[in-house]
Design a protein around this nucleic acid. Structure first.
Length: 426
RNA sequence: GGAGAGGUGGCAGAGUGGUUGAAUGCGGCGGUCUUGAAAACCGUUGAGGUGUUACAGCCUCCGGGGGUUCGAAUCCCUCCCUCUCCGCCA
């Protein structure tokens, strides 16, 4: 959520952000409601001030045993009027908040203005030694590999749950688990994150705070009876750990890493991009979340991105880092890097990580503050998160890049102590 | 699922209709003392909104929402949450 005061004072900036992000929040209507609300507020507050004053006077009169019937009758009228105005204020405020919930965060000045993913900018790429883009004859895609090696079973996933659900079998399951453990331990030991194992179901307030609601509500699963949402990412429960809290400045930055399954309806997305692991309704992800002081959030964004990259370097997987343009930037983010890994079979880059700075957008929605030692004032923290990383797309690159001409998969060295085997063969 | 207790400021904890935005303690901040620190002592210390060049002023907030009343932390309704005991259960 943006500060209403900021919108009031910088309507053009906000409108530009809405336009550049391909959103459609009605800023003029917000300004109109804001004006109306403040005017109503002024009227009620004046009446309330009078009521408070006279009510005290009534108290004094009664204590002195004097008659106050006449004043009480007059105050009854004032009170009724206040009630009427309060009702109006309530309605206008609700309408205002509903609109405000649809105003996206403003992109950082370093974010290129653009329409869609075609305007994103590649900032760097990293390739293993001796890597070649040219497709080799023996290369199979992850579906074929998964089937031949009996480690992935999408047919049975579809049977028991529906399309877009994977079953990991045997060494495939072990490899998945190894990846998760490897990534968690790496971030804990080498990057100093604190591990969180969060609930996978969260309430509506949590979904609102991180910005999934209202805009993306249709993409979320929902347990109707209890109004709980299966999390689309561990970002939601972990960022919400400190919702409605005042943190000490000494506690910042907070650095958390969490494994979770992630659940997404992916409503309306189908076609080419959806085969096998490229788009699934449930996948595993190790997520990093940081709560930091505002002045350091952009340095922290670079760090969180490089923390994610370290995993890929350790696993020797080719990747590139993309700076998203305004049109491709998510609703809540001010700046975001995507990390894409190479799929030799698809011959394209697959998004495996997204590292974002939300500045105080989520913190304002979730009311996450800290006490600034210097100014002694309360201030919103800045929140960031980055996938470190999502296993599904990573698994595609991992299998495809480590396959041998005779159809085996060589397990990357760092994973072996977690898998207990070096190779997967038919 | 059943029975009971409770949700008050950063924390603990008083307060049951009229100068209570809220006693007291802890914590925080500032100071005195000290070579320095601790202890002790003194002072100070909630948030949001509106408004102002800046102050001031005013309004709201005692889990959320609604109601009664001239006036609500205090009374009523409703929802949520936490804890204890019992039951069921991976």
């Amino acid at each position: 959520m943006l500060d209403l005061k900021f919108i009031r004072e910088n309507p053009e900036k906000v409108k530009e952000a809405v336009k550049n992000k391909n959103e459609k929040a009605d800023i003029d209507e917000i300004l109109r409601l804001d004006k109306e609300r403040r005017s109503l507020l002024q009227q009620t507050e004046e009446l309330k001030a009078e009521r408070n004053k006279v009510s005290q006077e009534i108290g004094r009169l009664k204590k002195a045993g004097e008659n106050a019937d006449e004043i009480i009758a007059r105050m009854k009228e004032v009170s009724d009027k206040v009630k009427e105005l309060d009702e109006q204020v309530r309605n206008v405020t609700e309408e205002l908040n509903n609109l405000l919930a649809w105003v996206p965060n403003i992109p950082h000045e370093s974010v290129p203005v653009g329409k869609d993913e075609n305007d994103n900018i590649e900032v760097r790429r990293w390739l293993p030694e001796g890597f070649e883009f040219e497709k080799k004859d023996f290369v199979k895609d992850h579906l074929e590999l998964g089937k031949k090696l009996k480690i992935l079973d999408f047919e049975r996933g579809a049977k028991i749950s529906g399309s877009g659900f994977a079953v990991y079998v045997g060494k495939g399951a072990t490899l998945e688990r190894a990846l998760i453990n490897f990534m968690l331990n790496y971030h804990i030991e080498k990057h100093g994150y604190t591990e969180i194992f969060p609930p996978f179901l969260v309430n509506r307030e949590s979904m609102y705070a991180t910005g999934q609601i209202p805009k993306l509500e249709e993409d979320m699963y929902h347990a109707n009876k209890d109004d709980l949402f299966p999390i689309p990412t561990a970002e939601v429960p972990v960022t919400n750990l400190h919702r409605n809290e005042v943190l000490s400045e000494d506690d910042l930055p907070k650095k958390y890493v969490a494994y979770s399954a992630c659940f997404r309806r992916e409503a309306g997305s189908y076609g080419k991009e959806s085969k096998g692991f490229l788009r699934v309704h449930q996948f595993n992800k190790v997520e990093m979340v940081k709560l930091v002081k505002p002045e350091s959030s952009y340095d922290e964004l670079e760090k969180i991105t490089s923390d994610a990259e370290d995993i890929l370097k350790a696993l020797n997987i080719p990747y590139r880092v993309i700076l998203l343009c305004t049109g491709d930037l998510s609703f809540s983010a001010a700046k975001c890097y995507d990390i894409e890994t190479w799929s030799p079979a698809e011959e394209k880059w697959l998004e495996a990580s997204s590292c974002s700075n939300f500045e105080d957008f989520q913190a304002r929605r979730g009311n996450i503050k800290f006490r600034n030692k210097e100014t002694k004032k309360l201030q919103f923290v800045h929140t960031l998160n980055g996938s470190g990383l999502a296993t599904s797309r990573l698994m595609v690159s991992l299998l495809e890049n480590n396959q041998t001409p005779d159809g085996k998969i060589i397990v990357p060295e760092p994973l072996r102590k977690y898998t207990g085997f070096d190779v997967i063969e038919p």
